[in-house]
């Protein structure tokens, strides 16, 4: 699974980081980026889905297998 944070949508709620710190990093302005170029290890796929379902801006997306 591969994910991406849409920079234009992310407003820095940090819900993704709180739910899956292994998958995201947030900067001092709250902007989130997906670690490892968005590559999600199999054992973290459930967490990635949670991050997708909890971002209030719908900024986290699944972009590929």
């Amino acid at each position: 699974m591969r994910i991406r944070v849409d920079e234009g949508r992310c407003q820095g709620h940090a819900r993704c980081f709180a739910l899956a710190p292994e998958l995201f990093s947030v900067d001092d302005y709250g902007l989130s980026t997906a670690l490892r170029d968005g590559e999600v290890p199999v054992e973290l796929e459930a967490k990635a889905r949670l991050a997708i379902a909890n971002c209030p801006e719908c900024a986290v997306e699944e972009v590929g297998p």
């Binding site: 407003q11 820095g12 709620h13 949670l50 379902a53 909890n54 209030p56 801006e57």
Partner: peptide
């Protein structure tokens, strides 16, 4: 609740700047 896109801290450009602190 696993799916929770709540907007207690607002949404868009005015999203609560203090939300990390409040949480």
């Amino acid at each position: 609740r696993a799916h929770n896109r709540h907007v207690a801290f607002g949404s868009g450009i005015h999203r609560c700047a203090g939300s990390n602190l409040a949480r």
